[in-house]
Amino acid sequence: MELLNTNVAANRLNISRATILQRVENKTMVSLTFQTKKLKKHFIPSDFLHINPQKIEFHDCKVISIIQNKGGVGKSSLAINFASSLSLISSKKARILIVDFDPQANLSENFLSQNILSNKPTIADIMRLHKENRELVTKDVVLNSISTVEFENVKYDILPSSIDLGIEIESLRTKTTPETRLNRTLKLIEEFYDFIIIDTPPTVGLYTQMALNCSDDILLIAIPEEFPARGFKTLLEQLELYKNEMIDLKDSKDFNIFGLVINKIENTNLNKHYKDVLVELSFKAGIDNLYFIPKLLTMSESQAFHIPIFEYKQECDMGFKIGGEILKIAFDYLVKNGIIKED
């Protein structure tokens, strides 16, 4: 996927540049906008020239969990940028919530101010209320814990986490069906969102079971190295086990594995070998949607600036290698669910 300036986009569509700019202004064309010192520059992803964001029709809320049993693979980055892709494609029309369900709270700390994190409740506080008396967990309690994050090109809400989440999850183990507590929480607010994306911790314990219990789909992520490749095989086996165990849980969703993101790909023989291992394991598990993201400094730099990849100006100079692939994930997901329509 290329990132086209307005002149090239106009030539591709055989229309005037003024028409392109008008479509961008009216939000009837998918575009990225970057503010320079003198003016705004607009860029059009080549695969989205014929997509009109205003004709995207959302249905019931979809819950997607980002899952991997190894740390350092880029789960939180994928959660943020997948949410950003959905927002970008819809010109901020999609109502998106990211649930930080990791006690490390990296996602929350990277995108929310310390003032918000210090003064608003977190998912840990909500889980504590579940422990004390689940009737205390109301729609207003959950909504009051959520903060909105908006940039030039994308917008989403975040339900933050904190280190206390680990304590609260452990204390829930003594309760009846603790796996259902996150599901009960999200059902209270599903009417306000088109997509809820859950960033899970690098484990396949109770956290993962709670996320799976409320997920329509899961998006797996791995990196092409020895230990993550070994762990990926184990993860697939555990997911199948959990799927069977969840059949008897009340209101549990029958999740599907939407796809696998192979992240941080480098041009080495060893890296290629483990990428092939991950691809083979995926095909054996019936995972058809595979996405390949190269290891580039661009992603690390955008994280350092606390912004999604689509807000990072240098992305334009990197051939759109990362952003384009993440946009493809979102596009495929929208097509799979019958949400997106071509103009």
Rank of each mutant, 00 (worst) to 15 (best):
Ile197Cys: 02
Lys38Tyr: 05
Met246Arg: 08
Asn115Trp: 03
Asp248Gly: 00
Glu25Asp: 13
Ile307Asn: 13
Thr185Tyr: 02
Pro53Ala: 05
Ile218Ala: 04
Glu179Val: 00
Asn11Thr: 12
Val99Pro: 07
Phe232Asn: 11
Leu3Tyr: 07
Ala229Cys: 12
Phe82Ile: 14
Tyr207Trp: 11
Ile20Gly: 06
Glu168Trp: 13
Leu159Gly: 02
Lys62Asp: 00
Ser147Val: 12
Gly71Pro: 04
Pro224Tyr: 04
Pro178Tyr: 07
Ile169Met: 08
Leu172Glu: 05
Ile262Pro: 06
Asn153Gln: 13
Ile51Arg: 01
Phe101His: 01
Leu290Asp: 08
Lys55Gln: 10
Leu129Met: 11
Thr174Gly: 13
Gly72Leu: 03
Val149Pro: 09
Pro45Thr: 04
Lys139Met: 06
Thr148Ala: 10
Leu86Asp: 01
Glu135Trp: 09
Phe255Glu: 01
Thr208Ala: 13
Ile322Val: 15
Gly323Phe: 08
Glu170Leu: 15
Pro224His: 04
Asn81Met: 03
Val261Asp: 00
Lys187Pro: 02
Lys175Ile: 11
Asp102Lys: 03
Glu245Arg: 01
Leu112His: 13
Asp288Pro: 00
Ser113Glu: 14
Thr174Lys: 12
Tyr333Gly: 10
Thr176Met: 15
Lys284Val: 15
Leu13Ser: 06
Ser282Leu: 11
Ile169Glu: 03
Arg181Cys: 13
Ile198Leu: 12
Thr298Gly: 09
His306Glu: 13
Ile262Ser: 10
Ser65Trp: 00
Ser84Ala: 04
Arg181Ser: 12
Lys321Gln: 12
Gly319Gln: 03
Asn244Pro: 15
Asn153Gly: 07
Thr268Ala: 10
Leu296Ala: 14
Asp288Thr: 11
Val149Thr: 14
Asn153Leu: 04
